[in-house]
C-alpha cells in the first residue's frame, strides 16, 4: 500500500510518500509497524503553502512519477492554521477526486488529527501543542508507544490513545490543569508534524474502516470525499 501524505496545519509543511510493503490496501496494519518513508520533505512554507506545496510535491515525486500508483491520499485535517488546512485538504481533494478518472470509485482520501500525528513524535504521556493564536494553543493528551503496546499486546496497532480531548485553550490554564492532574508536563523535543506519521495514521484508519465494513470501503463514520472539511475546533465568526 502506497500512501501520499501531506501536512499543512502549521507554519512549515511536510510531504511524504510511504510504502507499507506487504500490506495490501485495506488490510489491517497490525504488525506492519511504521514503514520508513520512501521520500519525505519538510518545507519552511512560512504559511505560503499555496505557492510551495505543489512544487515541492512534484519535486519529491519526480517528473516521471505516476499518480495512479498511489493507493491512498492522506492529509491532516486539523486543528491548525485555517488557511493552511484548507490549502492542503483542497489539494488532496483535487488529487483524490481526479483519481476517479481511471477507476470508478477513485483512491480514498483520509483525514487525520494534526495533534495525533504530532503526538507520534513522543512516547509515554505526550502533550502536543500547536499555536492557535489569539493567546491559545490547540492541544490534547495522548499516550504513545511501549507501555501502550505492552498493555494491548496483539491488539496494539501503533495508534496513540487519546487521553484528553482536542481543544483550544490558554497555555497557562492548560499547564496548570496538567500539572494538577498528571504532576508534570512532558515536553516534545520534535515539534514538527511529520507527513510520514500522517500517512501511518491514515493507513491505519483506512485499514480499520475496511475491516469494519467491506473491502475498499471507508470507515462508517468517516466523511465522504465530497463532504470532508477541516476540523477547525473554532467557529468561523
Amino acid at each position: 500500500m502506497r500512501v501520499l501524505a501531506l501536512e499543512s496545519a502549521t507554519r512549515t509543511g511536510s510531504l511524504a510518500l510511504v510504502d507499507y510493503v506487504g500490506a495490501p490496501l485495506g488490510a489491517p496494519l497490525n504488525g506492519v509497524r511504521q514503514a520508513a518513508p520512501l521520500r519525505e520533505i519538510t518545507l519552511d512554507a512560512s504559511l505560503q503553502h499555496s505557492e510551495k506545496l505543489m512544487p515541492a510535491l512534484i519535486e519529491m515525486l519526480g517528473a516521471e512519477f505516476k499518480i495512479e500508483t498511489i493507493d491512498l491520499f492522506a492529509v491532516d485535517h486539523g486543528p491548525g492554521s485555517f488557511t493552511g488546512l484548507r490549502v492542503g485538504m483542497a489539494l488532496m481533494k483535487g488529487f483524490a477526486f481526479a483519481s476517479r478518472a481511471s477507476e470508478a470509485s477513485g483512491k480514498p482520501l483520509i483525514g487525520v488529527s494534526s495533534l495525533e500525528a504530532l503526538a507520534m513524535n513522543g512516547s509515554g504521556l505526550v502533550v502536543p501543542m500547536i499555536d492557535a493564536h489569539r493567546g491559545q494553543v490547540y492541544t490534547a493528551v495522548y499516550e504513545v508507544g511501549a507501555a501502550l503496546r505492552d498493555r494491548r499486546k496483539s491488539l496494539w496497532d501503533g495508534r496513540p490513545k487519546l487521553i484528553e480531548p482536542e481543544q483550544a485553550i490558554e497555555p497557562e490554564k492548560w499547564l496548570k490543569y496538567l500539572v494538577e492532574k498528571y504532576g508534570s508536563v512532558p515536553r516534545l523535543e520534535d515539534n514538527q508534524i511529520h507527513a510520514r506519521n500522517v500517512a501511518f495514521l491514515a493507513a491505519l484508519e483506512f485499514g480499520r474502516g475496511a475491516a469494519a465494513t467491506r473491502p475498499g470501503a471507508c470507515h462508517r463514520h468517516a466523511p465522504t470525499l465530497f463532504s470532508m472539511t477541516p476540523r477547525y475546533l473554532r467557529a468561523g465568526v
Binding site: 499555496s50 505543489m54 512534484i58 499518480i67 485555517f82 488557511t83 484548507r86 490549502v87 492542503g88 483542497a90 489539494l91 488532496m92 481533494k93 483535487g94 488529487f95 483524490a96 477526486f97 481526479a98 483519481s99 478518472a101
Partner: peptide
C-alpha cells in the same frame, strides 16, 4: 477573498496534476 480563491486554486492544481 484569498481564503476562498485558494480552495478553488488548490483543487484545480490537484486535479490537473492527476489528470
Amino acid at each position: 477573498l484569498v481564503g476562498s480563491l485558494l480552495v478553488g486554486l488548490q483543487v484545480a492544481k490537484g486535479m490537473a496534476a492527476t489528470l
